[in-house]
Amino acid sequence: MRALGRIHPWSAVRHVLLLAGALVMLIPFIWMLSTASKPQTEIFSSDLHLIPYHFALWDNLKIAFAKADLWRYLLNGLIVTILIFALQVLVALPAAYAFAKLRFLGRDVLFALVVFCILIPPQATAIPVFLLLHKLGVLDSYIALVLPFTISVFGIFLMRQFFKTVPDDLIDAARMDGISEFGIVWRVMLPTAIPAVTAFGIFSVVAHWNDYFWPLIVLNSEHLQTPPLAVAHFRNNEAGTNYGPLMAAAMVIIAPLVIAFLFAQRRFIEGITLTGIK
Protein backbone atom coordinates (compact mmCIF):
# COMPACT_ATOMS: atom_id res chain seq x y z
CA MET A 1 0.00 0.00 0.00
CA ARG A 2 2.87 2.35 0.83
CA ALA A 3 4.66 1.51 -2.33
CA LEU A 4 1.54 2.23 -4.31
CA GLY A 5 1.47 5.69 -2.72
CA ARG A 6 4.47 6.54 -4.83
CA ILE A 7 2.63 5.79 -8.01
CA HIS A 8 0.68 8.78 -9.14
CA PRO A 9 -2.56 7.24 -10.43
CA TRP A 10 -3.28 5.60 -7.09
CA SER A 11 -2.85 8.89 -5.31
CA ALA A 12 -5.44 10.40 -7.62
CA VAL A 13 -7.87 7.52 -7.09
CA ARG A 14 -7.42 7.87 -3.35
CA HIS A 15 -8.27 11.55 -3.42
CA VAL A 16 -11.27 11.05 -5.70
CA LEU A 17 -12.74 8.37 -3.43
CA LEU A 18 -12.04 10.25 -0.23
CA LEU A 19 -13.36 13.53 -1.59
CA ALA A 20 -16.55 11.85 -2.75
CA GLY A 21 -17.04 10.32 0.69
CA ALA A 22 -16.18 13.60 2.37
CA LEU A 23 -18.83 15.31 0.30
CA VAL A 24 -21.47 12.85 1.51
CA MET A 25 -20.34 13.45 5.09
CA LEU A 26 -20.53 17.20 4.61
CA ILE A 27 -23.77 17.46 2.61
CA PRO A 28 -26.02 17.77 5.67
CA PHE A 29 -23.82 20.56 7.01
CA ILE A 30 -23.68 22.30 3.65
CA TRP A 31 -27.42 21.96 3.14
CA MET A 32 -28.05 23.25 6.65
CA LEU A 33 -25.95 26.33 5.96
CA SER A 34 -27.53 26.80 2.57
CA THR A 35 -31.10 26.48 3.86
CA ALA A 36 -30.36 28.70 6.83
CA SER A 37 -29.26 31.38 4.36
CA LYS A 38 -32.31 31.18 2.13
CA PRO A 39 -35.53 33.15 2.42
CA GLN A 40 -38.80 31.24 2.77
CA THR A 41 -39.70 31.53 -0.92
CA GLU A 42 -36.46 29.95 -2.07
CA ILE A 43 -36.74 27.09 0.42
CA PHE A 44 -40.23 26.20 -0.78
CA SER A 45 -39.37 26.03 -4.42
CA SER A 46 -38.80 22.91 -6.43
CA ASP A 47 -35.72 24.48 -7.99
CA LEU A 48 -32.56 23.22 -6.23
CA HIS A 49 -29.76 25.64 -5.69
CA LEU A 50 -26.97 25.76 -3.19
CA ILE A 51 -26.15 29.47 -3.10
CA PRO A 52 -29.17 31.54 -2.13
CA TYR A 53 -30.24 34.22 -4.63
CA HIS A 54 -31.12 36.37 -1.70
CA PHE A 55 -28.90 36.00 1.33
CA ALA A 56 -31.17 35.69 4.37
CA LEU A 57 -28.96 34.12 7.06
CA TRP A 58 -29.18 37.13 9.36
CA ASP A 59 -32.95 37.32 8.99
CA ASN A 60 -33.33 33.63 9.74
CA LEU A 61 -31.05 33.88 12.75
CA LYS A 62 -33.02 36.88 13.97
CA ILE A 63 -36.28 34.95 13.64
CA ALA A 64 -34.78 31.91 15.36
CA PHE A 65 -33.55 33.99 18.29
CA ALA A 66 -36.90 35.77 18.50
CA LYS A 67 -39.00 32.61 18.44
CA ALA A 68 -36.86 30.71 20.86
CA ASP A 69 -34.68 31.96 23.65
CA LEU A 70 -31.57 30.35 22.16
CA TRP A 71 -29.12 32.22 24.40
CA ARG A 72 -30.93 30.83 27.40
CA TYR A 73 -30.73 27.29 26.03
CA LEU A 74 -27.06 27.61 25.21
CA LEU A 75 -26.49 28.88 28.73
CA ASN A 76 -28.45 25.92 30.11
CA GLY A 77 -26.28 23.59 28.09
CA LEU A 78 -23.18 25.29 29.41
CA ILE A 79 -24.34 25.21 33.03
CA VAL A 80 -25.37 21.57 32.87
CA THR A 81 -22.27 20.26 31.09
CA ILE A 82 -19.83 22.23 33.25
CA LEU A 83 -21.63 21.26 36.44
CA ILE A 84 -21.67 17.60 35.48
CA PHE A 85 -17.99 17.60 34.58
CA ALA A 86 -16.92 19.47 37.72
CA LEU A 87 -18.88 17.12 39.98
CA GLN A 88 -17.65 14.05 38.11
CA VAL A 89 -14.06 15.10 38.74
CA LEU A 90 -14.80 15.97 42.35
CA VAL A 91 -16.31 12.53 42.96
CA ALA A 92 -14.18 10.36 40.71
CA LEU A 93 -10.66 11.65 41.36
CA PRO A 94 -10.46 10.82 45.10
CA ALA A 95 -12.02 7.40 44.46
CA ALA A 96 -9.64 6.75 41.58
CA TYR A 97 -6.70 7.66 43.81
CA ALA A 98 -7.93 5.35 46.56
CA PHE A 99 -8.38 2.47 44.10
CA ALA A 100 -5.01 3.06 42.46
CA LYS A 101 -2.70 3.81 45.33
CA LEU A 102 -4.24 2.88 48.70
CA ARG A 103 -4.83 -0.47 50.33
CA PHE A 104 -8.11 -1.14 52.05
CA LEU A 105 -10.31 -4.07 52.82
CA GLY A 106 -12.62 -4.92 49.93
CA ARG A 107 -10.79 -2.74 47.44
CA ASP A 108 -10.67 -5.29 44.68
CA VAL A 109 -14.32 -6.30 45.11
CA LEU A 110 -15.41 -2.68 45.05
CA PHE A 111 -13.31 -1.97 41.99
CA ALA A 112 -14.81 -4.98 40.24
CA LEU A 113 -18.21 -3.40 40.96
CA VAL A 114 -17.00 -0.15 39.39
CA VAL A 115 -15.93 -2.04 36.28
CA PHE A 116 -19.26 -3.84 36.19
CA CYS A 117 -21.12 -0.52 36.39
CA ILE A 118 -19.31 0.65 33.24
CA LEU A 119 -21.25 -2.02 31.40
CA ILE A 120 -24.67 -0.59 32.38
CA PRO A 121 -26.09 1.43 29.48
CA PRO A 122 -27.58 4.73 30.64
CA GLN A 123 -31.03 3.93 29.25
CA ALA A 124 -31.30 0.82 31.42
CA THR A 125 -31.52 2.70 34.69
CA ALA A 126 -33.73 5.50 33.36
CA ILE A 127 -37.03 4.36 34.86
CA PRO A 128 -35.85 3.72 38.44
CA VAL A 129 -33.70 6.88 38.48
CA PHE A 130 -36.69 8.83 37.22
CA LEU A 131 -38.83 7.39 40.03
CA LEU A 132 -36.11 8.23 42.55
CA LEU A 133 -35.93 11.83 41.38
CA HIS A 134 -39.71 11.94 41.49
CA LYS A 135 -39.65 10.75 45.12
CA LEU A 136 -37.00 13.37 45.92
CA GLY A 137 -39.24 15.94 44.26
CA VAL A 138 -36.47 17.30 42.05
CA LEU A 139 -37.83 16.44 38.59
CA ASP A 140 -37.82 19.29 36.10
CA SER A 141 -34.79 21.05 37.58
CA TYR A 142 -31.06 21.40 37.05
CA ILE A 143 -30.65 18.83 39.82
CA ALA A 144 -32.55 16.25 37.78
CA LEU A 145 -30.30 16.98 34.79
CA VAL A 146 -27.05 16.82 36.74
CA LEU A 147 -27.40 14.47 39.71
CA PRO A 148 -27.61 11.11 37.87
CA PHE A 149 -24.38 11.88 36.00
CA THR A 150 -22.29 13.10 38.93
CA ILE A 151 -21.01 9.55 39.24
CA SER A 152 -18.90 8.52 36.29
CA VAL A 153 -17.70 4.99 36.88
CA PHE A 154 -15.88 5.24 33.61
CA GLY A 155 -14.13 8.35 34.90
CA ILE A 156 -13.02 6.44 38.01
CA PHE A 157 -11.75 3.59 35.86
CA LEU A 158 -9.90 5.89 33.47
CA MET A 159 -8.28 7.98 36.17
CA ARG A 160 -7.36 4.91 38.19
CA GLN A 161 -5.54 3.47 35.19
CA PHE A 162 -3.72 6.77 34.83
CA PHE A 163 -2.85 7.04 38.53
CA LYS A 164 -1.43 3.52 38.41
CA THR A 165 1.34 4.90 36.20
CA VAL A 166 2.27 7.63 38.71
CA PRO A 167 5.31 6.43 40.69
CA ASP A 168 4.69 5.58 44.34
CA ASP A 169 7.78 7.56 45.26
CA LEU A 170 6.04 10.77 44.30
CA ILE A 171 3.22 10.02 46.73
CA ASP A 172 5.59 8.93 49.49
CA ALA A 173 7.56 12.12 49.00
CA ALA A 174 4.34 14.11 49.40
CA ARG A 175 3.52 12.16 52.60
CA MET A 176 7.01 12.92 53.93
CA ASP A 177 6.29 16.58 53.24
CA GLY A 178 3.23 16.25 55.45
CA ILE A 179 0.50 16.43 52.82
CA SER A 180 -2.67 14.57 53.80
CA GLU A 181 -4.17 11.87 51.63
CA PHE A 182 -6.91 14.28 50.63
CA GLY A 183 -4.34 16.93 49.81
CA ILE A 184 -2.37 14.44 47.69
CA VAL A 185 -5.39 13.94 45.43
CA TRP A 186 -5.68 17.60 44.55
CA ARG A 187 -2.15 18.89 44.94
CA VAL A 188 -0.12 15.96 43.60
CA MET A 189 -2.33 13.65 41.54
CA LEU A 190 -4.54 16.21 39.77
CA PRO A 191 -1.62 18.22 38.32
CA THR A 192 0.01 15.08 36.94
CA ALA A 193 -3.30 13.92 35.50
CA ILE A 194 -4.17 17.05 33.53
CA PRO A 195 -3.92 15.38 30.07
CA ALA A 196 -6.15 12.49 31.15
CA VAL A 197 -8.60 14.84 32.86
CA THR A 198 -8.73 16.97 29.71
CA ALA A 199 -9.52 13.98 27.52
CA PHE A 200 -12.17 12.85 29.98
CA GLY A 201 -13.56 16.38 30.11
CA ILE A 202 -14.00 16.53 26.36
CA PHE A 203 -15.64 13.12 26.43
CA SER A 204 -18.01 14.19 29.20
CA VAL A 205 -18.89 17.62 27.83
CA VAL A 206 -19.57 16.35 24.31
CA ALA A 207 -21.69 13.46 25.60
CA HIS A 208 -23.85 15.67 27.81
CA TRP A 209 -24.10 18.64 25.46
CA ASN A 210 -25.46 16.30 22.81
CA ASP A 211 -27.62 14.20 25.16
CA TYR A 212 -31.28 14.20 24.22
CA PHE A 213 -32.72 11.18 26.02
CA TRP A 214 -32.37 12.28 29.63
CA PRO A 215 -33.41 15.94 29.34
CA LEU A 216 -36.41 14.77 27.30
CA ILE A 217 -37.50 12.55 30.18
CA VAL A 218 -36.98 14.77 33.18
CA LEU A 219 -37.77 18.24 31.84
CA ASN A 220 -41.09 19.97 31.39
CA SER A 221 -40.28 23.62 31.75
CA GLU A 222 -39.22 25.43 28.64
CA HIS A 223 -36.73 27.68 30.41
CA LEU A 224 -34.63 24.70 31.56
CA GLN A 225 -34.26 23.14 28.11
CA THR A 226 -30.85 22.08 26.93
CA PRO A 227 -29.83 22.79 23.33
CA PRO A 228 -30.86 19.44 21.77
CA LEU A 229 -34.22 19.54 23.48
CA ALA A 230 -34.70 23.15 22.43
CA VAL A 231 -34.03 22.46 18.77
CA ALA A 232 -36.40 19.46 18.80
CA HIS A 233 -39.01 21.62 20.49
CA PHE A 234 -38.50 24.38 17.92
CA ARG A 235 -39.02 21.85 15.15
CA ASN A 236 -42.24 20.50 16.68
CA ASN A 237 -43.65 24.00 17.05
CA GLU A 238 -42.74 25.11 13.56
CA ALA A 239 -43.38 21.79 11.89
CA GLY A 240 -43.07 22.09 8.15
CA THR A 241 -43.23 25.85 7.95
CA ASN A 242 -40.15 27.71 9.08
CA TYR A 243 -37.22 25.71 7.74
CA GLY A 244 -34.92 28.70 7.38
CA PRO A 245 -35.00 29.69 11.04
CA LEU A 246 -35.05 26.01 12.07
CA MET A 247 -31.82 25.34 10.19
CA ALA A 248 -30.37 28.53 11.65
CA ALA A 249 -31.28 27.29 15.11
CA ALA A 250 -29.74 23.88 14.43
CA MET A 251 -26.61 25.67 13.28
CA VAL A 252 -26.44 27.67 16.50
CA ILE A 253 -26.86 24.51 18.58
CA ILE A 254 -24.05 22.56 16.94
CA ALA A 255 -21.75 25.57 16.52
CA PRO A 256 -20.02 25.62 19.94
CA LEU A 257 -18.80 22.03 19.80
CA VAL A 258 -18.03 22.02 16.08
CA ILE A 259 -15.97 25.18 16.37
CA ALA A 260 -14.15 23.88 19.44
CA PHE A 261 -13.53 20.64 17.56
CA LEU A 262 -12.06 22.40 14.54
CA PHE A 263 -9.66 24.24 16.81
CA ALA A 264 -8.48 21.21 18.78
CA GLN A 265 -9.25 18.19 16.60
CA ARG A 266 -6.59 15.94 18.01
CA ARG A 267 -7.70 16.40 21.59
CA PHE A 268 -11.35 16.01 20.67
CA ILE A 269 -10.82 12.83 18.69
CA GLU A 270 -8.76 11.48 21.58
CA GLY A 271 -11.45 12.41 24.08
CA ILE A 272 -14.40 11.11 22.14
CA THR A 273 -12.84 7.81 21.21
CA LEU A 274 -12.70 7.16 24.93
CA THR A 275 -16.31 6.10 24.43
CA GLY A 276 -14.78 3.28 22.49
CA ILE A 277 -12.89 1.99 25.48
CA LYS A 278 -16.00 2.37 27.59
Partner: peptide
Protein backbone atom coordinates in the same frame (compact mmCIF):
# COMPACT_ATOMS: atom_id res chain seq x y z
CA UNK B 1 -19.69 12.31 15.36
CA UNK B 2 -19.25 15.72 16.96
CA UNK B 3 -22.37 17.48 15.78
CA UNK B 4 -25.44 17.21 18.01
CA UNK B 5 -27.35 14.28 16.53
CA UNK B 6 -30.76 15.81 17.16
CA UNK B 7 -29.90 18.95 15.22
CA UNK B 8 -28.45 16.93 12.36
CA UNK B 9 -31.44 14.58 12.39
CA UNK B 10 -33.64 17.57 11.76
CA UNK B 11 -31.40 18.60 8.89
Amino acid sequence: VMATLIAMAIV
